[in-house]
Each structure stands twice: as structure tokens, then as C-alpha cells.
């Protein structure tokens, strides 16, 4: 990947459209997780529209990069990206969480085109990503990457650190973890519920290449991923600081918006704000 060749403005537009879709689909579902979906929108948009090699027409193409959404409750951000990329039509988004929908409450690889593996029980995705990285043909593995998005609260799961140990021990250089550090979990601030201390220092101690960035700065995300990918012989992690609920004024920084849908009135306000943000970037739905 050549970081300079990536059109960051186009990614910003994609992220803005994805935010609108996220709120619209969760409102239609009447339940879901807007906070952690909105915090991850710029990261996921950057991966799908700037960094990853993938082809919606051939979701199983062997040369594709792989993405594992370990924080599976942020399924709406993945569905928004997959729909935007063309894995399935946008009309499916409003069927989220409904009986018979392609789009389950948490990612289901048996139902949704483009979803590599089912997730939702926290702490498992990084281990799965390790296995995928191991299993890719060693002769072409250096051309392919495995990306795994985790939440910072999720890092309270002990298995994340079993995987951290495993990835470094096996020198999984094609593996890139991204931590969406929005600082909040269901019961409140991560620092108050169960303080993680320094996530960067912990990964570094396990032998990972570590970079940090503002998780809403597309250029910063691209540069950080490029930086950890450039180091051979060990896995890389980007700790991206984000704002939970980013883009909707009344959701930003509020733990209460982790896992509930907005009311009709709240949805109107949120979509108006997101529409304005879209227009500001010269984009439309």
C-alpha cells in the first residue's frame, strides 16, 4: 500500500455516509449499538475504502485481505461498509435485526456476504485473526494482511492477551490489530469499570509494534497502519483514540448510547446532523 496514493477525502465521504446508515438502520431496528459503531466508522471506512484489497464481486477471492470485527456488537458499522462497497444492496440495511434478515444483531458469516467469521462474544476475534494469519499461504502471506478491530473495553477479556502472546511468539507480521479506544463501556468509563492501564505499553511488552493515532483522522489512521506494517517479524497494533457516538451531538461521549436505539425524535435530530455533515463534505446519500 502507498499511503500517499490514498484519497482521504473520498474516505471521509464514505465514513459520513456510513454514519448516516448506522443511525438509520439502528433506528429502524429499534435496538442495537450506535456508540461503538459510530466511534469506529472512520477506522472501518479507511480499511474498506483505502487500505484493504477486496472485491465485493468475489468475496472469497483467495488474494483478498481479511477483516475480523472482534467487537461484534459494532456490526452496523461493518454492514454500512459492506453495503457501501457493494457486497449487498442498501435496502437490506433497514432489515437489521429482523427475522429472516441477512443482517443479524451480531456478524454471522453464514448469512452475510463479506463477513469472514461470526463474532459477538467479546475477546475471540484476535485469536481467530491469528489463526487466519497462520493459515494463509506463506508464499503469498506477505502480500496480504489480516486486520482485526477490537474495543478497548473488550481488552478486559483475558483471551485477548493469550492471542497477543501467540501473535508475537509466531511473528505474525501480516496481522494488524486496531483498538477503537473510545474509553466507554456499558457500565461507564473503562477506567472506572476495570482500568486497563496503558494499552500501548501492554501490547509493546508482549512484543508488538505499536502506533497511536486519532481514530477520526483518516491520514493518521493510514500512516499508523503503514508504520506498523513496515516492521517485519512482528504483529502490529494501532491504538486509535475515538469518541463514542462520534458525529451525533447527544451521543458523543455518553456511555448510555452503547446499546440503545434513538427515539423517533432523537433519530430526526441525529439524521439532520449527519446529513449536514455529509453536505459539508460535498457528499450525498
Amino acid at each position: 500500500m502507498n499511503p500517499n496514493a490514498i484519497d482521504t477525502q473520498a474516505i471521509e465521504m464514505k465514513a459520513a455516509r456510513m454514519r448516516y446508515d448506522i443511525v438509520e438502520m439502528i433506528a429502524a431496528a429499534g435496538s442495537g449499538h450506535p456508540g461503538g459503531s459510530l466511534s469506529a466508522a472512520d477506522i472501518v471506512a479507511t480499511l474498506y475504502f483505502g487500505i484493504m484489497k477486496h472485491d465485493p464481486a468475489h468475496p472469497d477471492a483467495p488474494e483478498r485481505d481479511r477483516f475480523v470485527l472482534s467487537k461484534g456488537h459494532a456490526a452496523p458499522v461493518l454492514y454500512a461498509a459492506l453495503s457501501e462497497a457493494g457486497y449487498f444492496g442498501r435496502e437490506h440495511l433497514i432489515t437489521l435485526r429482523k427475522l429472516g434478515s441477512l443482517l443479524q444483531g451480531h456478524p454471522d458469516s453464514k448469512k452475510t456476504p463479506g463477513v469472514e467469521v461470526s463474532t459477538g462474544s467479546l475477546g475471540q476475534g484476535l485469536s481467530i485473526a491469528c489463526g487466519i494469519a497462520l493459515g494463509l499461504n506463506p508464499e503469498t502471506a506477505d502480500e496480504r494482511s489480516v486486520y482485526c478491530l477490537l474495543g478497548d473495553g473488550e481488552c478486559q477479556e483475558g483471551q485477548v492477551w493469550e492471542a497477543a502472546m501467540f501473535a508475537a511468539h509466531n511473528s505474525l507480521e501480516s496481522l494488524v490489530a486496531i483498538v477503537d479506544r473510545n474509553g466507554l463501556q456499558i457500565d461507564g468509563a473503562c477506567s472506572e469499570v476495570m482500568c486497563l492501564g496503558e494499552i500501548e505499553a501492554k501490547f509493546a511488552a508482549f512484543g508488538w509494534e505499536v502506533a497511536t493515532c486519532d481514530g477520526h483522522d483518516i491520514e493518521g489512521i493510514i500512516d499508523s497502519i503503514a508504520r506498523v506494517r513496515a516492521v517485519s517479524g512482528r504483529p502490529g497494533v494501532v491504538v486509535a483514540s475515538t469518541v463514542k457516538g462520534k458525529g451525533v451531538s447527544f451521543m458523543e461521549g455518553e456511555a448510555g448510547w452503547h446499546g440503545k436505539a434513538p427515539s423517533t425524535e432523537e433519530t430526526e435530530v441525529a439524521l439532520r446532523e449527519l446529513q449536514a455533515a455529509l453536505e459539508e463534505k460535498g457528499a450525498s446519500l
Binding site: I128, I132, L134, G135, Q159
Partner: peptide, 25 residues
């Protein structure tokens, strides 16, 4: 052959990832 060490949860999910990558794990 991959040894996960004393970490059975990771063992199962690493095997799952290998299966996602096309192996019989």
C-alpha cells in the same frame, strides 16, 4: 503444528482462524 501454550480458549479460536483460512484444524 501450533502450540498455544496453556491457553485453551486461544487454542480453539486459532484453530477456527486456520479453518477460516481453508485448513482442516
Amino acid at each position: 503444528f501450533f502450540n498455544a501454550g496453556i491457553a485453551e480458549q486461544n487454542m480453539i479460536n486459532v484453530a477456527a482462524g486456520l479453518a477460516v483460512a481453508g485448513k482442516i484444524a
